[in-house]
Every structure is written in structure tokens, then in C-alpha cells.
Computed example of a mutant assay.
Amino acid sequence: MNRFKAMLSLGLMLWLAGCANGAHRLPYDSWRLGFGTPNYMDVWIETADAVDVQNRVFRRAMDGIASTQRPKNLKRDPRGWPKEPGAGAGKQVLGADLPRLIYVRWQSLAEPQTYEAYIVIPEAARQAMVKGEKAFCLADAKWITDYRKMLTIGLAPGGIARVWLMGPCLSALDVARVQGTVVKQGPDGGRSGGRYALPLEPASKTYIEKHGIPYGSW
């Protein structure tokens, strides 16, 4: 009986250790989901849900304001995407295996309009997420083994979602471009009576009134 109890305890300890150390087999504790927009094109994210390769759903992996640059001198051109996008405003997706699908529903405050998109993460991108690469980090001037564990999504007027994969010290890889669809119920699933979460920031409002929205450039 004592031997049975010892084996049972050992099995439980190994199972708990596997959970604590990430039974999802990733070479890091978590990956990051971040969101940005073209300059002056403000966005409020109602929800971003992640589904990993084990079909586990991580609801509201991210919500709130997406990262946006809006200089008051109106000198930033919002057309197109940068070659090296930033990480965006985001959160770590704790306990998840590699991502299979990202669902995002957002309010494009620049228009205004509400969109949703289902973003399928291809197998090649998942393989890139677990491939360690030698990288030189300018922040501390050191060579390290880095991983592309940052998934960044750019959200643009017209319902465009653009996806990149990057590491803290590795360049961005272009993963996908998805055309979202209009949410007919409007903002907040129709529960807000058509009211959007936030007003446009003053600089964004001024830019759009002066220059308009460059649809088709994303």
C-alpha cells in the first residue's frame, strides 16, 4: 500500500510539474498578442479571443485601446504599413499552446464602424514561433537566442487586419492579411444603442477632417 501511495504521489508530482513548466511544449512561458493601427486611425478592441492548437479558447486575451501614433503636427502619413511594426498594445497569453485562430471584434473609431475578423494562423508561422534564432539585441548589446513569440495585428479602416510575427530582437515576418466583415448589430453587440466606446482623439479627428481616410492603402 505504501508503495502504491508513493507511485501515486510521484505521478501527481510529475503531472503538476508538467503543468507548471508548460505542458504545451513551448520554449518560453507565454506568447504575446498585440494590436496597433495606422497613424490617427483610432481603434477600440471589444474582444480578441485566441484558440490554440489544442482547441482551448482564451477569451478576452486582449481588449481596450490599440496602439496609435497621432502627432499633433499631423505630419505622420497613415497610408500603408511600416516595414517593422511595433509590438502594439497587448497582453501575454498565459498557459496557451501555439495559436491556431484569433477572433477579433473592434470598433474603428475613425469611421466609425464595427468589424470582426477570424484570423487563421498558418502552420509555417507556428513553426517560426518555436525556432530559436541568433539575434543581436541593441538594448543590451548582446547576442542571444531569440524567438518570434510576439503576434502583432494591425487594424485599419475598412475592416483590414494585418498580421506579423516578431521577436524582441528579431525582425517581423508578414503572416497574413484578412478582410473583416461589418458587425450589423453595431458597437457592443447593439447593447450601447449605437454609441462607440470612445470619441476620436483630437489630433485624429483633425487629421481625418483635413485629409480623410486613405481607404485601399492597407
Rank of each mutant, 00 (worst) to 15 (best):
D146P: 03
Y147S: 05
Y115V: 10
G154E: 02
L138E: 15
L101Y: 05
V130Y: 11
A128Y: 02
D146C: 10
K131L: 13
G158L: 09
W164I: 05
Y103W: 15
W143K: 09
V104Y: 03
L98E: 08
M129V: 04
V104C: 09
K134M: 11
E133D: 12
L155C: 03
L98D: 08
K142V: 13
T145N: 13
K134S: 11
P99R: 11
C137V: 13
M129Y: 07
Y118M: 07
W106A: 05
L138I: 14
I144Q: 07
A125E: 08
P122V: 10
T114V: 15
D140Q: 08
E116S: 13
A128Q: 13
M129Q: 02
P99G: 10
L109A: 09
L165R: 05
A124K: 09
A141V: 00
A141N: 01
E111Y: 00
I121A: 07
Y115A: 08
I102W: 00
L151H: 06
G159V: 01
I160R: 08
Q107S: 02
E111D: 05
A117Q: 04
C137G: 15
I119W: 00
L155V: 05
R100D: 15
S108Q: 15
T145V: 15
M150C: 01
I144N: 01
E111V: 06
Y147A: 04
M150R: 05
L138F: 12
V163G: 06
R148K: 14
L170A: 12
A124C: 00
A139Q: 14
K149H: 03
M166N: 02
L138S: 15
L165H: 06
R105Q: 15
R105I: 06
Q113K: 13
W106D: 04
V104T: 13
K134V: 11
W143Q: 10
E133I: 11
K134P: 00
P99E: 11
R126H: 02
I121Y: 03
T152N: 03
T152D: 04
C137F: 11
T114R: 08
Y118E: 12
Q127V: 14
V104S: 08
R162E: 01
E133C: 11
I160E: 02
